[in-house]
Design a protein around this nucleic acid. Structure first.
Length: 761
RNA sequence: GGGCCCUUAGCUCAGUUGGUUAGAGCACUGCGUUUACACCGCAGGUGUCGUCGGUUCGAGUCCGGCAGGGCCCA
């Protein structure tokens, strides 16, 4: 008995690229059909009574539901009485008494001494008077209830296992509408049994349960009152009524759920795949190893990719499901409810001797599992396919390892004998601010639109980019504010760089001039100043680190190192070279990038420009809008199509053996202590320092000296003495007594500090 | 019941093969308005690295037990 399909099908207009994905889905189905991987079977099927469609194992979830154990007496049949010499009833406990008419056996654990002598004998079902055997199976739990249970067709998935493995008869009572069938199942033959069933026919599961309990109570076979319990019940993940198991004809794809060799092969495919992070592999293996049936792909829904087959209609008007008619691959996509089966004409639809179209559609994952084939042009672009398949990377969430990832592996394994991609980058959940999983029912879902409006796209993306693969990310607006600050900083620092180099002056006229100016600034003079070379050397190292991190799927580390250096670039380097780069230009004065300037200014300008060009490309994946905006000010095309920074070119400009980060850090530290003098004196950073002694750890002296001029300019220092701190262990060793007394003890010579600061009035 | 991940500053998290005094941002406090930036800058304090034990010259890091949190599967 097939469930009814829709009487007419709504056929939406489908754009070409979608019809091509439909064709791919149908072609893969037909290939599978010809190889025997796709097949149809009349079998117990997980069924959602609300949506009236079959559901696959991957779409199930357990939910705790209240229920009650009903203790019911089964009378012994003649063979049991004879064997035991007793008329004692057998008591079972069940949470689903309404399935009593579907009972086909009682089952206990083979080692359970209480029931061993009963195995092979029979009992009679109460109310319905059907003789059913007592059987043994290891899945029966001796410690649950009375240790013996009734097997019904079908109350749950364990019933299906018992039914299949013990080869029990089928006595279905549930229809696809969630009501008990009109006719009593085979086996109920006695007038009393048929009458009892008549009381239940057409009732919902809920009402049938109430009626059965009344009848059992009246018959005196309900032992005591039902005992309330909580137990896990299978639900369709999108449904709100428990799933039932209904016997229907459905289409399946072999996925290792019924075939050990295929299961092993798919586990082996999983071990070939590079999971990022690696522990996600366990989820895949658990899932594949735990499969209990093939992948059910047919759905009784309206919208979806049609299963591309027709069936001959027999003389009695019924479809001949055993001989499906298939289209040729070049006719795809087809809709069998509209298109005519090959070899027939339209007048022969649904008439004896004619054909009928399959009404079912495919599970959405039956198409999604083919995204690599769709994208790589498997069906219509062999050249592209050869060049791009298998793909490199599947990025996806951890919750769909069992669906999207696994089903893609299944399809690729069957069709191509390979993995669909080499790497799988698995992300975690986005949790609410209290680290709870977001769900509609809890009402803690945050949708992105408001966030994008409040913080900007770059800021939201920055927050998302801070989540490491495989790690859940708590939703954090604070992090978005930081992202926004970074994006603003990129805009402002870029404005400064393009202003101080003069590129902005001519780029405002035309982009060609901007490009010419950029080339001129970065190539017309060498980068000579040690601080500039250090900046570029540090940047080259960061490019290397970020590149390696991205190659290892550690995008957060790539961002982190770029971000850290960028703040140093803004807070220290820009401040240090600002004066030098301006080269005497007055505030507000437009700088001509082509005019001659001092070598120090040329060095700074080349460095600023090269650093900006590099930082923009490092940040482009995370701050796509801010970087693109700046790029448009002085570069052509899109930053997102620009090449990834090349550390070798940056390092070549920096020069061989240039001290990078350490020199930059030492200069930054020196700037910091100069600022501290003013901060502690509670005066403006603009205040002049008339004279100061800078005590520098021995190892850093040369680096600080190399940046001395820039330090004096940035710190507004008139006279500065740079002293090796290890030679100044005694206060006043340089001949001047400390004025404020704060350094009047032996200081740590490894810490940079100042002495004898004299601020201008 | 089987398995996986997590536990580090008030908060969010780094901490790479074990190796100086465990870091960052936020928040907090104070100061500052500068030739890119107030959606700003500078300076400052903040830790029993869940807990107990083990390995080691040395453990946030490796091993085991326990507790708490989260997840997958049955």
């Amino acid at each position: 008995m097939a469930p009814p399909g829709p009487e007419c099908r709504l056929v939406p207009h489908v754009p070409d690229h979608l019809s091509s994905s439909q064709a791919v889905a149908q072609q893969a189905f037909l290939r599978g059909l010809s190889r025997g991987e796709c097949y149809q079977a009349e079998a117990p099927t997980l069924w959602d009574v609300t949506f009236r469609t079959a559901v696959a194992q991957a779409e199930l979830e357990d939910r705790e539901r209240p229920g009650a154990y009903h203790r019911i007496a089964f009378e012994p049949a003649a063979d049991m009485e004879e064997k035991t010499g007793s008329y004692a009833s057998v008591y079972i406990e069940t949470t689903r008494p309404e399935l009593l008419p579907a009972c086909v056996a009682l089952v206990a654990h083979p080692d359970d001494e209480r029931y061993q002598h009963l195995f092979g004998t029979h009992v009679r079902t109460p109310l319905f008077g059907v003789e059913v055997p007592v059987v043994a199976h290891h899945l029966a739990s001796p410690d649950k209830g009375s240790g013996i249970a009734m097997i019904c067709t079908f109350g749950d998935v364990t019933d299906v296992t018992w039914w299949r493995e013990l080869r029990l008869p089928t006595r279905p009572v549930l229809g696809w509408d969630g009501r008990l069938l009109a006719e009593a199942p085979e086996g109920i033959t006695s007038p009393e049994g048929v009458a009892a069933y008549g009381e239940l026919a057409g009732l919902t599961v809920f009402s049938a349960q109430q009626r059965v309990v009344e009848m059992l109570r009246e018959a005196g076979v309900l032992d005591g009152e039902p005992k309330p319990t909580q137990h896990p019940v299978k639900f369709f993940e999108k449904g709100d009524k428990p799933l039932e198991i209904v016997t229907t004809r459905q289409w399946y794809i072999r996925n290792g759920g019924t075939d050990r060799a295929l299961n092993d092969a798919l586990v082996a495919r999983g071990s070939e795949l590079d999971f990022e992070p690696d522990f996600m592999r366990v989820r895949y293996e658990n899932w594949v190893r735990g499969l209990t049936g093939d992948w059910l792909i047919s759905r009784q829904r309206f919208f979806g990719v049609p299963i591309p087959v027709w069936y001959p209609v027999l003389a009695d008007g019924s479809p001949d499901y055993d001989h499906p008619i298939v289209p040729s691959e070049d006719a795809l996509p087809v809709d069998p409810s509209v298109d005519v089966a090959p070899g027939f004409d339209a007048s022969q639809r649904d008439v004896p001797g004619g054909f009928t179209g399959e009404k079912d559609i495919m599970d959405t994952w039956a198409t999604s599992s083919l995204t690599p084939q769709i994208v790589c042009g498997w069906r219509d672009n062999p050249g592209l396919f050869a060049a791009t398949f298998p793909m490199d990377l599947r990025p996806q969430g951890q919750d769909i390892i069992r669906t999207w990832l696994f089903s893609s592996v299944v399809r690729s394994h069957q069709e191509h004998g390979t993995l669909p991609w080499k790497h799988a980058a698995i992300s975690g959940w986005i949790l609410d601010p209290d680290r709870k999983k977001m769900s509609k029912s809890k009402g803690n879902v945050v949708t992105p639109m408001g966030l994008l409006e409040t913080h900007g796209s770059d800021a939201v993306r920055y927050w998302a980019a801070a989540a490491r693969l495989g790690t859940d990310a708590a939703f954090d607006e604070g992090q978005m504010k930081i992202g926004r600050r970074l994006a603003m900083k990129v805009l402002n620092a870029s404005k400064f760089v393009l202003g101080a180099t003069g590129i902005a002056t001519v780029a405002a006229e035309s982009l060609e001039e901007g490009l010419r100016a950029t080339a001129h600034v970065t190539t017309s003079a060498p980068v000579t100043e040690p601080l500039d070379r250090a900046m570029l050397a540090a940047l080259a190292d960061v490019v290397d680190t970020a590149t390696a991190a991205l190659s290892a799927y550690d995008h957060t580390r790539a961002l982190e190192v770029a971000e850290t250096l960028f703040w140093t670039f803004c807070d220290d380097y820009l401040e240090l070279v600002k004066t030098r780069a301006y080269d005497g230009a007055a505030p507000g004065e437009a700088i001509d990038p082509f005019a001659p300037c001092s070598p120090g200014a040329a060095s700074a300008r080349a460095t600023l420009t090269l650093a900006l060009h590099t930082f923009l490309r490092l940040f482009a994946p995370v701050l796509p809008f801010a970087t693109e905006e700046v790029w448009s000010w002085f570069q052509e095309g899109s930053v997102h199509r620009a090449s990834w920074p090349d550390s070798a070119r940056v390092r070549a400009v920096a020069g061989e053996d240039t001290p990078g980060a350490p020199l930059l850090a030492a200069a930054g530290e020196a700037l910091s202590v100069l600022r501290k003098v003013k901060s502690e004196a509670k005066v403006s950073q603009r205040t002049e320092i008339a004279s100061i002694d800078l005590l520098v750890p021995e190892a850093k002296v040369a680096w600080v000296r190399a940046a001395e001029a820039d330090l004096r300019a940035a710190g507004r220092v008139s006279a500065m003495q740079i002293v090796d701190a290890s030679l100044a262990l005694e206060p006043g060793v340089d001949g001047l007594a400390p004025e404020d007394g704060s350094n009047d003890e032996i200081a740590d010579p490894t810490v940079m500090r100042t002495e004898n600061a004299r601020l201008a009035e």
